[in-house]
Design a binder for these strands. Structure first.
Length: 560
RNA sequence: GCCCCCGUCGUCUAACGGUUAGGACAUCAGACUUUCACUCUGACAACGAGAGUUCGACUCUCUCCGGGGGUACCA
C-alpha cells in the first residue's frame, strides 16, 4: 500500500481564511500611524488606550507590540560573523532598547557537523566590539539558562517526549530514499517533500520497522488548515492548507533539530517578539503549529509576534553570501570601519530615522526605532555609501577618541611602536597629537590613518614616492626643489613654523619664481610625504622639522 | 511543479489619497583650498505594466510581468 497523501494541493481560488488568533499582549498598545511614529518623543504612550483591546491590528494596519518586548538574537556558530547577521542583531537590540525591553542572546549550536567553537567566540567578540549589549544570555547568564543549545539537550528530549505522547508528534520510519521513491511512483514532483506516510502507522507496522533495527524520527503533524499570522513587517501572511509537510523535529539518533529547539527555547525564555531574517519566513507556519502544541502542553505561555527582516543583498540580485568578502564583519573592522559607522549604515538598510536624514547615533537609533517601520524589500549592501557614512562618524569623533582608536591600526601597520597610547614614545605622542586633527577629516576608514601619518612619524631622510605621486612630478620639479632648498636652508630653527614656511615658499616660488601653485608645491609635497594625498603640507613640514624636511627635499632631488 | 515574499532615481530611502515625487551615496560640473580631503553650489536621474475604486492613486484592490526565497533527518 502506498502512502496516504494527506496534503491537499488544491488550486481552489477561494479559501476561507483561518485566521490564527494571536494572543492578546498585555500592556499598552502602540497604535501609531507610520507617518509620525518615531519622530517625536511623545508618540508612544498617548493614544494607546483606544485600541488596546484589539491586539491584532490598529487602524493603520499595524500589529500592536507588547509594552516591553523580549527579543532574542540566536545565531548558529557557523563561519565568521557577517553583516546580515549583524543587522539582525542590531534590529533586535534596537527594538529592545526602544521599548526598554529585554535582549536575549542565545547560541543555536545543534548541528555538530557545522558548528565550531571558533565561530562561537567570534560572534561574541563581534557583538562586544559593536557594542550591542545583551541583558540575558551567553556569558551574562539569566533566569532561563543555559543559553547554549548544546547544553540543553535534556530539555528538548523532555519536550519531544511530551509532544509524542500528546499526539502532536509521531514516529516516522521513512528514509528520504523511500519518500522520494514514493513521490516518484505517484507521479509527484521530486521536490514534493514528505508525504505523510507514517502518520497512520499501526502499532504492528511500527513494531515491524523496529524489528528491522530502524529507529524513528519524530515529525510534527501539520493541520489541514491554512496557517496565518500577522507579520510585523509584512502584514498578514497566509500559508495555504496542505502546503507545509509534516516535518522532523528529532532525528532517529535522538538529536533535536532547529525546528524543535528554536520554538522551545523561545517559549522557555518567554520571547514575545521574534525578529529574524526573511529566510525563516517559510518556516514560520511550522513554528506556529508547534507553538500551539507547546501552549496546549503548558510549555509556552503565548504565541510570539513575528517580524521577518528583508535580506541584505550582495552584487547582482543575490543574497549577500557568507563567501562574499563584503559580508565579512571582521574584514570591515580591519579596513577601519568603526562600530558607529557600520551600524548606522546597516540600520539604513530597510529603515530610516526620518526624512532627509541618514547619520545618527546608536542612542538616536534606540530612541526612534520601531520594527514596524522596517521596509519589506531587500536592500543591496553598498560599500561606497557604507564608507561615506563611516567617514561622517569618524569626523564626529572627539579628536582624542579618534587618536585612541587609530593607534591599533597604526601599530598593525608598523607605523608606531606600540598598540596603545600609553606605550608610545614621547615623540610619537607629540607628533600624533599635532597630526590627528589634520588627518581626521581626511580619512574615511581608520585603516587609512597609517598612510597619512606615516611620513610624519618616520625620520627617513628619503621617501620613495608612490607611483601616482611620482607621476605628479613635472619637468620643473628639479628647479623648484633647488629654489625651495636654498630658501628653507636660511630659515632659523626657531622660525620653522607652518605659516611662515607657507609665506616664504609662496614668495620664492610663486611670486618670484613664477610657478603655478600646483607646480610649486607639488614636488615639495611629494618629497615630504611621498604621496599625492597627504596632511596639509606646511603643517607637515613643521611637524617633521627642518632637518628632515631638507633631507627629504634633497633626497627627492637626487632621485628624480 | 507547489508554497511564500518583494517591486520609487544606478544604490539606500522619504512622501495623512492632493508635493514641481524630497534627501543621501555614487556620477558629472563649479566655488573654496598649496595638492588631496573637508565644506559649499548646481546638474543628471525613479513611482515595473495594465485595469479598477476615487473629483483625485506612488499610496487602496485585482491581474500580469519581473526578481528572490522555501520546498532537508541545515539554520
Amino acid at each position: 500500500m502506498q502512502g496516504v497523501d494527506i496534503r491537499r494541493r488544491s488550486h481552489a481560488a477561494s479559501h476561507g481564511f483561518c485566521f490564527v488568533p494571536l494572543r492578546r499582549r498585555d500592556g499598552a498598545a502602540v497604535p501609531l500611524p507610520r507617518h509620525n511614529r518615531g519622530m517625536t518623543q511623545e508618540t508612544p504612550q498617548q493614544d494607546s488606550a483606544a485600541t488596546a483591546a484589539d491586539n491584532t491590528s490598529d487602524h493603520s494596519g499595524k500589529v500592536d507590540l507588547p509594552a516591553k518586548v523580549r527579543v532574542r538574537f540566536c545565531p548558529s556558530p557557523t563561519g565568521t560573523p557577517h553583516v546580515g547577521m549583524v543587522r539582525t542583531a542590531l534590529f533586535n537590540w534596537a527594538e529592545a532598547r526602544h521599548t526598554k525591553g529585554t535582549f536575549v542572546f542565545r547560541i543555536e549550536d545543534t548541528d555538530a557537523a557545522r558548528d565550531s567553537q571558533e565561530s562561537y567566540e567570534q560572534i561574541i567578540e563581534a557583538l562586544r566590539w559593536l557594542g550591542l549589549d545583551w541583558d540575558e544570555g551567553i556569558e551574562v547568564g539569566g533566569p532561563d539558562g543555559p543559553y547554549r543549545q548544546s547544553e540543553r539537550t535534556q530539555i528538548y528530549k523532555d519536550v519531544a517526549a511530551k509532544l509524542l505522547e500528546a499526539g502532536y508528534a509521531y514516529e516516522s520510519y521513512s528514509t528520504s530514499e523511500e519518500i522520494e521513491a514514493r513521490n516518484l511512483a505517484a507521479g509527484r514532483p521530486k521536490a514534493f517533500g514528505y508525504d505523510g506516510y507514517d502518520r497512520t502507522l499501526s502499532e504492528e507496522q511500527k513494531q515491524a520497522f523496529r524489528d528491522e533495527g530502524r529507529k524513528p524520527a519524530l515529525r510534527i503533524r501539520m493541520p489541514e488548515d491554512d496557517v496565518a499570522f500577522d507579520d510585523l513587517i509584512r502584514g498578514e501572511i497566509v500559508f495555504k492548507a496542505g502546503s507545509v509537510p509534516d516535518y522532523v523535529i528529532v532525528r532517529p539518533n535522538g538529536d533535536p533539530l532547529y525546528t524543535l529547539t528554536n520554538p522551545v527555547d523561545d517559549a522557555l525564555m518567554r520571547i514575545n517578539v521574534v525578529l529574524r531574517g526573511e529566510d525563516l519566513l517559510s518556516s514560520t507556519p511550522r513554528q506556529i503549529v508547534l507553538y500551539r502544541a507547546l501552549i496546549e502542553l503548558g510549555v509556552a505561555k503565548e504565541m510570539p509576534l513575528f517580524g521577518h527582516m528583508p535580506y541584505v543583498m550582495g552584487e547582482g540580485k543575490k543574497k549577500l553570501s557568507k563567501r562574499d568578502p563584503e559580508s565579512n564583519l571582521f574584514l570591515h573592522r580591519e579596513n577601519g570601519f568603526i562600530p558607529e559607522g557600520l551600524l548606522n549604515y546597516l540600520a539604513l538598510l530597510g529603515w530610516s530615522i526620518g526624512p532627509d536624514r541618514d547619520v545618527f547615533s546608536m542612542q538616536e537609533l534606540a530612541e526612534h526605532f520601531d520594527i514596524r517601520d522596517v521596509k519589506a524589500n531587500p536592500a543591496h549592501f553598498d560599500i561606497d555609501k557604507a564608507i561615506a557614512i563611516n567617514a561622517e562618524h569618524i569626523r564626529l569623533l572627539d579628536p582624542a577618541d579618534f587618536l585612541r582608536r587609530s593607534i591599533a591600526y597604526l601599530h598593525r601597520d608598523g607605523t608606531v611602536s606600540a598598540p596603545t597610547w600609553d606605550d608610545l614614545t614621547d615623540r610619537e605622542r607629540t607628533i600624533l597629537e599635532a597630526a590627528a586633527p589634520l588627518i581626521q577629516p581626511r580619512v574615511r576608514l581608520l585603516g587609512e590613518v597609517s598612510g597619512m601619518a606615516g611620513s610624519l612619524l618616520s625620520t627617513a631622510e628619503y621617501i620613495e614616492p608612490e607611483p601616482d605621486a611620482r607621476k605628479q612630478l613635472k619637468a620643473t620639479a628639479a628647479e623648484v626643489l633647488e629654489k625651495a632648498i636654498a630658501a628653507l636652508d636660511e630659515v632659523p630653527e626657531d622660525e620653522w613654523h607652518g605659516d611662515s614656511l607657507h609665506e616664504l615658499l609662496s614668495k620664492v616660488l610663486v611670486e618670484d619664481g613664477g610657478y603655478k601653485p600646483r607646480l610649486a608645491f607639488g614636488p615639495i609635497r611629494v618629497a615630504v610625504s611621498g604621496r599625492r594625498v597627504s596632511p596639509p603640507l606646511f603643517e607637515s613640514m613643521e611637524i617633521i622639522g627642518k632637518a628632515v624636511t631638507l633631507a627629504r627635499l634633497r633626497g627627492l632631488q637626487n632621485n628624480l
